[in-house]
Design a protein around this nucleic acid. Structure first.
Length: 829
DNA sequence: GAGCACTGC
């Protein structure tokens, strides 16, 4: 069977499984409540639930009849243009009453349609083409061009650069930078701030310039572009540095793009940042934890007076620049951008079922609007899958005069090959309808989009320090985010945004800005980082936004129980090692424990697997049969994992991957991955992370002077005997030392344990909360285990443990005797 | 008995 066939089949299977999905959806639409019922945002308080659903016709008496049984009677057509003008964007063609275009492919009837039935009717089935290019395209590499070719290209690009609005302000910008230590620059999208301002600075700066980006792809592609404009080889005067890839040269590079995480790492090595004369923080408005940390650190450095020569430029896209300006007491420069106008349309009434409304809106736009693709923002995977199913079901029955709709899902848990379908060019008379999560807001840019449909919703993970769990909540987006989503329609030509909420809600209900990451996340790692760079007074450290004492104390408590801090709150030598490892502190503690109990090799493998998101893809394609089939196939590859849980299963899967990999048979490897729904690229990443962890484990031990010499030699020998002989020789198979492997994990996750109760439920060791094994786990359905340990505790419809292992009560006794006595780990002062 | 948004080292 060819790849093409596979894809078409799975598409149809998706379509046939949707009624089940929808039933589930209804139950999930209940409030994602928290056990403590505090500060949560429920779906009922969302804008889409705010206005009572209106089932009657609009003023002009027209409503879309829609697809009976599927979409109900929600009047989507009443879109009014901002500010006051009422406008009906609906064309003539799709008045359901008049022409009967929708031939009642109701949900109920469609579900019974067989594959053949569907196929015969659908001569227009979209063909998907599997990408054949195996190259790793993640990173940019220097190109082979002669010096004169590069100069020609740079001159060519200079003409374009000169047309950018920002180019006119070059002298003014440099003047501000010369006169102030910190400057805040607001640059609208399309202003060219990220490429131009750093280049302006090269001429007036003697040392290196660092430009931070929140994402890796941004860092590497900006460096690529700027090196062309500058006329140099990438990695020489202009370079970049991200995890796994350093295309820069310490002596030659004047301008380096790096991720914010990389810069924070450099800060840990040199807390005066001596090698840089200028730091540019780009995309500061995104407020990631790491940029917030860097900004706080820079303020501390400037206040200390140790780097009066250091220039800092904070670049932000939205108007929240006052925050940065006040924080640094710095002037603000505003640079206008250049994007196409985007007309805004609002719903006069909100709808209760966002999926139905979005389907209707997409169908309507397809019929009434000029060419251009449609990008829809939905909160999550489930809504997207449902919408894709409905659209692909009704697509063949839509009017012939309109383009054929090609629905395409886009979210992080999709495999890279599925994601790349959005970039393929379609034959004429077809229109992409991309149904995406927030991933399309910043991370992935799709060209050809002229229309955006915005549900106004997103999913957000919120951490509760008191409970040690995270909740996944569906909540409204901010105005800033709504603008960002709208902007996606105006990148290449004038566009339109259709907001599935009223203008009143936009104005009065949506917050101006999103809550920043640092306020809704676990800050154990940030606190450890601060301890590492010598900050003792965490409460009065210059936080851009203070995370609050509770969060800090809770993080300190965790670090203390992991052994990273001593009784006085000082960082220990163990803490130093943990801070350097590129892992959450809990996992660092696991690695260090494993080293001492002789299971480092296996634990590194497992930790590397855990570090890759979406390694084991969830099976979303429709019916339960397919899911059961894949699950049982997977079980063949993890006999021990079936008994001991997901961590051991990771090890077994990875072991099999490595065996195939060592034989060099990529095709077989890929088909094994797709058969079991594993992420091939993800496994490749596991290999890279494992190598890095191995390097760090050697490096940290060698550099650590706090350990005496004998101990150091002992540890080195330990490491060598574990790592060197058989690391690259996977033909040597030793039986897994499961008790010691899992006990190492217990050292980092002792608070993430639960005991099996007589009533076959599980209750957490720390505070007796009810917890269930997540359906994605190998141990799902097992209710007779003595005790479990889990890597993550998330609350969705109820409390779930993810990445679960079966453990023995005696291990708990060994690792932490106090936990069974009900004593909580607290800071001793 | 039933399912997780995104990113970084």
């Amino acid at each position: 069977m060819s790849n093409n066939e596979t894809n078409v089949t799975s598409n149809v299977l998706e379509a046939s499984g949707m009624s089940k999905k929808r039933k589930r959806k209804r139950s999930r639409n209940k409030n994602p409540t928290n056990p403590d019922n505090q500060g949560e945002i429920s779906s009922e308080s969302l804008p889409n639930g705010q206005v009572k659903q209106q089932k009657t016709a609009s003023k002009d008496g027209k409503i879309i009849e829609g697809i009976p049984g599927v979409v109900g009677d929600i009047p989507v057509t009443q879109l009014s243009e901002n500010p006051k003008l009422e406008r009906d964007t609906r064309g003539q063609a799709y008045d359901g009453n008049k022409k009967g275009h929708f031939k009642k492919p109701t949900f109920e009837s469609k579900k019974n349609k067989s594959f053949d039935n569907y196929k015969s009717k659908d001569n227009k089935t979209v063909k998907f083409f599997e990408r054949t290019n195996d190259e790793d395209e993640d990173y940019h590499r220097p190109t082979n061009m002669s010096r004169s070719q590069r100069a020609d290209k740079a001159n060519e690009l200079l003409e374009i650069r000169k047309t950018l609005p920002i180019y006119q302000h070059k002298d003014e910008i440099l003047k501000y930078v010369a006169e102030n230590q910190v400057v805040v620059i607001i640059g609208e999208t399309g202003s060219g701030k990220s490429t131009q301002i750093p280049q302006f600075l090269i001429s007036s700066n003697k040392g290196q310039i660092a430009v931070t980006q929140p994402r890796r792809v941004a860092a590497s592609s900006l460096a690529q572009r700027v090196s062309e404009e500058y006329g140099c080889v990438l990695g020489e005067e202009v370079g970049y540095q991200v995890r796994f890839s350093n295309v820069s040269n310490n002596k030659l590079t004047k301008l380096k793009y790096l991720t914010d995480g990389m810069l924070l790492r450099e800060i840990m090595l040199d807390n005066k940042l001596n090698k840089y004369s200028c730091i540019v923080i780009d995309e500061a408005h995104e407020r990631t934890i790491l940029t917030d940390m860097i900004l706080g650190f820079l303020k501390q450095l400037i206040n200390s007076g140790e780097r009066p020569d250091l220039k800092v430029i904070v670049m932000s896209a939205t108007l929240n620049a006052e925050l940065f300006s006040q924080f640094f007491q710095a002037p603000i420069l505003f640079i206008e951008g250049r994007t196409y106008p985007v007309a805004k349309y609002y719903l006069t009434d909100s709808s209760e079922d966002i999926v139905d409304t979005i389907v209707r809106a997409a169908v309507q736009i397809n019929l009434s609007e000029q060419q251009g693709d449609i990008l829809c923002f939905l909160p999550g995977q489930e809504e997207i899958d449902t919408a894709v199913n409905i659209l692909s079901t009704i697509a063949p029955d839509l009017p012939k005069e309109a383009p054929i709709i090609v629905p395409l899902p886009l979210y992080a848990a999709l495999s890279p090959s599925q994601q790349s379908k959005i970039f393929e060019t379609l034959p004429k008379n077809r229109r992409k309808v991309i149904l995406a999560t927030n991933i399309a807001e910043t991370s992935i840019t799709v060209s050809g989009v002229r229309y955006v449909i915005d549900s106004g919703l997103r999913k957000v993970k919120v951490w509760k320090h008191e409970l040690g769990l995270s909740s996944l909540l569906t909540t409204t987006i901010s105005q800033a985010s709504a603008k960002q989503r709208a902007g996606r329609a105006g990148r290449e030509a004038p566009g339109k945004v259709f907001r599935l909420y009223s203008e009143k809600i936009y104005q009065s209900e949506l917050p101006k800005d999103q809550e920043s990451e640092i306020m809704r996340n676990d800050i154990v790692l940030p606190i450890l980082t601060l301890k590492k760079i010598g900050v003792d007074d965490l409460i009065y450290w210059p936080w851009l936004e203070h995370p609050g004492e509770t969060a800090i104390l809770s993080a300190l408590s965790t670090l203390y129980s992991l052994g990273a801090l001593d009784n006085n709150g000082k960082i220990t030598s163990l803490g130093y090692k943990m801070a350097v490892l590129p892992l959450p502190p809990q996992l660092s503690a696991v690695l260090i424990t494993a080293m001492n109990s002789g299971v480092l090799k296996d634990v590194i493998d497992i930790v590397s697997c855990i570090s890759v998101d979406n390694l084991v893809l969830n099976v979303t394609t429709g019916d339960g049969e397919m899911r059961d089939e894949i699950n049982s196939k997977r079980r063949n590859y993890c006999p021990l994992g079936c008994r001991y849980g997901d961590l051991i299963a990771f090890k077994e899967y990875f072991q099999y991957f490595e065996e195939l990999n060592s034989m060099g048979n990529t095709e077989e490897l890929k088909s094994w991955c797709s058969e079991l729904h594993f992420n091939f690229k993800g496994f490749k990443n596991v290999l890279r992370i494992r190598q890095q962890l191995k390097d760090y484990m050697f490096g940290t031990i060698r550099q650590d002077d706090s350990i005496n010499r004998d101990e150091k030699d002992q540890q080195l020998n330990n490491l060598k005997s574990q790592l060197v002989p058989d690391y690259d020789d996977i033909t040597i198979k030793k039986p897994l030392d499961i008790p010691n492997i899992l006990k190492s994990f217990l050292k980092g996750y002792i608070t993430n344990t639960a005991i099996g109760m007589p009533d076959r439920s599980y209750r957490t060791c720390t505070n007796g909360q009810l917890i269930s094994i997540h359906p994605s786990s190998n141990l799902f359905g097992k209710s007779n285990l003595d005790a479990i340990m889990y890597i993550e505790y998330v609350f969705t419809s109820k409390g779930y443990a993810r990445n679960v292992s079966a453990i023995e009560l005696s291990w708990l006794q060994d690792v932490a005797p106090h936990i069974l006595g009900g004593t909580k780990v607290t800071i001793k002062d």
